[in-house]
Amino acid sequence: MNERIVQLLLLTVLLGGWQIAAVTGTIDRFFFPAPADIAVQVWRWITDPSFYRHVGVTVGETALGYLLGTASGIACGIWLGLSPKAARVLDPFIKAFNAIPRVVLAPIFVLWFGLGWGSKIALAATLVFFITFFNAIQGVREVNPAVLANARILGADSAALLRHVYFPAAASWILSSLRTSVGFAVVGAIIGEYLGASAGLGYLIAQAEGNFNSVAVFAGISVLAVFVLAVDKMLDVLENALITWRPSTQSGSVRT
């Protein structure tokens, strides 16, 4: 509880100091708009129904890109984790693709998929894919050999092994990658919108920037931060509901 108070105090000092510095003119309001102005802008947005069209577009692109990227990442990761031969053959290709900075793909995706949702989804998906992919491979490879041998002797066929051994073993790896990749999915969607779109939060920020409206840029950033935090919280709940078997480090529940 004490930490909460310190956190609140820190936030107050930070925002308060910023506000005072902006009002007294210590920092230039053109570049660093006052927090109060940003709050007003955010308020104006959230009370304006047309704003939610932009949020909806960004959420939709993020969600679709995220689903596409994580699903294909998990599938490819488990496949290559299970067949070392294919993994060896494909290894240089994967490394080469992974070496490409994904952001430079954005213009190409715009050419390929147009200015609509397609290019944003593609960008978000490529950003997310490799994170889940590498985690899923790792998860499958880290399966305890004794557990695997035990399940085989107990009579598990390949489908049962996948369901009862490989998947749960990889689940904690995959879940942790699912959390990191949410941020990347948002980044993908926003960059896509920023480079060329007619709707979305990234588009709003690009518009504000074009008008030298730093208040709206900061407001857009704040909305994005809250948006990612909310999704992260949701995944937190999901993770705790899915993985109940893991020893929790705090409660010291190991009895010997």
Binding site: A146, V147, N150
Partner: peptide, 23 residues
Amino acid sequence: FQQDALLPWKTALENIELGLQFR
């Protein structure tokens, strides 16, 4: 097995019934 070969994501009961489940 010498090592812990139980499936850590299954309860004691679920572990015990695995062989029957696979059958």
